[in-house]
């Protein structure tokens, strides 16, 4: 091949990815820069922009609703993450020790997370209705106290975390199962010959070897959990009061319900920085546990 043809090959390849790159720049890069610009401006009632410096960010620090949003975002994130990792790993171990994964079982496992989150929200809204829902009927029948679920400021975060766990723990399980299946069987055999108990094998061998897979699942879920929107907006819209008002919901409402464009932009930039930081930290962690 002559150098000339390599050159033209490079040009042809660049031309093939150009539409995707240009589309991303037009739809994402430019709007993000625009949002950053908006975040440094104030808008009059007629929509005229004036430079405001860091005023929007200063307002953010003084805004109790922002700190509440930050707390709700991280409480929901931590609780959902722990619940779905534990449930997902548990489910993956069960699947791993049973027979081959049948098509029927796999269909059952993917059904929660392939369903629109909005539909999941509608469905659970009916099941968790405090007075007529099936969930409270089951609790009361078992002699347990009924719960206010989504209507209770105390229970709304755990309830939303449970709904999200119902939807996404099977996804975590399928990822972890993939990791389990790729582990070399020889490590178990050696441990079994040494007479280690199943629990010890799990803690000392399986879990450490699985860590890279688990962290991968955590990264994929983090991105969704930090910008949690659909289920909250369909069920509580941030309520009761502001008990489930995550940063994403709050930013959305400031922008599209109160039309405070500058302030909403500052909120969204802050949330995006948090998502970016979380992904970077978790990627670091993934490299640290890689083997």
């Amino acid at each position: 091949m002559t150098p000339g043809s390599t050159n033209s090959q490079g040009r042809q390849l660049a031309a093939l990815s150009a539409p995707a790159v240009l589309f991303t720049v037009a739809m994402i890069a430019f709007p993000v820069v625009y949002t950053i610009w908006l975040g440094f401006h104030a808008f009059s009632s007629t929509g005229e922009a004036s430079f405001a410096g860091g005023a929007n960010y200063a307002a953010l620090v003084a805004d109790g609703e922002f700190w509440n949003g930050l707390y709700v975002t991280f409480a929901l994130y931590a609780l959902s993450m722990v619940l779905q990792l534990v449930a997902g790993i548990y489910l993956a171990m069960l699947l791993f020790h049973s027979k081959r994964l049948s098509g029927l079982l796999r269909s059952l496992l993917i059904s929660p997370f392939m369903m629109p989150p909005v539909v999941a929200g509608m469905m659970w809204l009916v099941i968790l209705d405090p007075s007529l829902g099936a969930a409270n009927y089951i609790l009361v029948s078992l002699g347990l106290p009924a719960s206010e679920w989504l209507a209770s400021p105390t229970w709304v975060i755990p309830t939303i975390a449970l709904i999200d766990t119902w939807q996404w723990a099977p996804y975590v399980a399928l990822i972890v199962l993939g990791g389990l299946q790729s582990l070399p069987p020889s490590v178990y055999e050696a441990a079994q010959i040494d007479g280690a108990s199943p629990f010890r094998i799990f803690r000392r061998i399986t879990l450490p070897l699985l860590l890279p897979t688990i962290v991968t699942a955590a990264v994929l879920r983090s991105v969704d959990l930090l910008r949690f929107f659909d289920i909250i907006y369909i069920t509580t819209q941030g309520g009761p009061g502001n008990a489930s008002n995550t940063l994403n919901i709050y930013g959305f409402r400031v922008g599209f319900e109160f039309f405070n464009i500058g302030y909403a932009s500052a909120l969204m930039i802050t949330l995006s920085a948090i998502v970016l930081a979380a992904v970077l930290v978790l990627n670091r962690l993934r490299n640290a546990v890689a083997w």
Partner: peptide
């Protein structure tokens, strides 16, 4: 683009 919160570009999109 898939990782950023959608609300981040929704506001400029709306204006544009």
């Amino acid at each position: 683009a898939r990782m950023a919160p959608g609300t981040l570009f929704l506001l400029p999109w709306y204006i544009m």
